[in-house]
């Protein structure tokens, strides 16, 4: 039921609304991470100054969004949680859109989405979700709440707690601070990739889908990982990226990496880049541009970043064509 109190969140001046919405999101994050929702905690998570936080938390209580519990912790009202979820949904959907449809650099997604999340109405958020085909996860690997407000609790833990030698999946890549996130993006580390970890002197060594990397210590806190689901296959030994496949060396597609999302993913799948497809590198373009591969009877040209998304295994070249 909508509150009968006259002012509603949508009616506030945009500056005030932005601060309150940031606080609501911070509280939602506390709930998900099972943290104590004290004022200090909320200040830390939202990046709002303490004085502003004090007045705006009071204002949010007035608006019927929050409840101050006697223990000094904060809690949601029903309406408050809905607003928080709308903002989170807008943020994650916007990031998904940016990842799929624009060429915007990954480290700038957060900033753009952060502005957009405070400007979108519920119906705009829903329309965006429909247009994107109601995705379930955003590019960082986080679940996007449904319009009914449902989303599962995360089951990940920090990479630092992971025991070496064990295969796992990168579950979440934190996008703040942006410059550290940009380094991870440049290394090709994105949510959904499978890895095997090894301790190294200068950080943690990860063997990720056919490539090995060393993650320096300062980047480690940004990564959260999870173990493989029972139906998931572990990392494939001997697999390489399609871009590393050489001419006259037939290969077989192992999988399309999760770093390839949205329309690009469905396009590549539809073109036949599915596990088990035999694939050959057939034509180089001049100036070292795209490379054409023959897959399922058709020649498809891909640029290097696209070919990096395809994991293949080398086939014995004496084997008969499929």
């Amino acid at each position: 039921m909508p509150e009968l109190n006259p002012p509603r969140l949508a009616d506030l001046a945009s500056a005030e609304r932005t601060v309150i919405e940031d606080l609501l999101r911070a509280l939602l994050e506390c709930e998900n991470r099972e943290l104590e929702a004290t004022e200090t905690q909320l200040v830390g998570l939202s990046g709002v100054s303490r004085e502003t936080a004090t007045t705006k938390l009071a204002r949010a209580t007035e608006l019927g969004l929050l409840i101050a519990e006697p223990s000094g912790r904060w809690g949601f009202t029903e309406g408050g949680r809905d607003e928080a979820i709308r903002v989170m949904r807008a943020h994650r959907l916007t990031e998904t859109k940016l990842a799929r449809e624009t060429g915007l650099a990954a480290e700038r997604w957060h900033e753009v989405a952060h502005t957009a999340e405070h400007r979108m109405t519920q119906s705009e958020v829903d329309a965006l979700a429909d247009r994107l085909g109601n995705p379930r996860f955003d590019p960082h690997g986080d679940p996007i709440p449904t319009r009914e407000g449902r989303f599962p609790a995360p089951q990940d833990r920090p990479l630092l707690d992971w025991s070496p030698g064990q295969p796992g999946v990168i579950a979440h890549v934190e996008d703040e601070p942006a410059e550290l996130f940009a380094r991870l993006v440049a290394m090709g580390v994105t949510a959904g990739l499978r890895f095997v970890s090894m301790r190294e002197d200068r950080g943690v060594g990860l063997f990720i889908e056919g490539r090995s990397l060393v993650i320096p210590p300062e980047l480690l806190p940004l990564l959260r990982v999870r173990s493989l689901h029972p139906e998931e296959k572990g990392p494939v030994a001997g697999a390489i990226r399609l871009s590393d496949l050489e001419t006259d060396e037939p290969g077989e597609v192992v999988t399309l990496l999760p770093s390839c999302t949205g329309s690009e993913r469905s396009r590549l799948l539809d073109l036949g880049f599915v596990p088990g497809s035999r694939i050959e590198r057939v034509l180089e373009s001049p100036l070292h541009g795209p490379v054409a591969y023959r897959v399922r009877g058709t020649m498809i040209a891909l640029r290097r970043p696209q070919a990096d998304h395809v994991l293949v295994s080398r086939l014995d070249s004496t084997r008969k064509p499929l």
Partner: peptide, 9 residues
């Protein structure tokens, strides 16, 4: 003309 019927394109 489409390759599939399942995407949102």
């Amino acid at each position: 003309g489409t390759y599939s019927l399942r995407s949102a394109s």
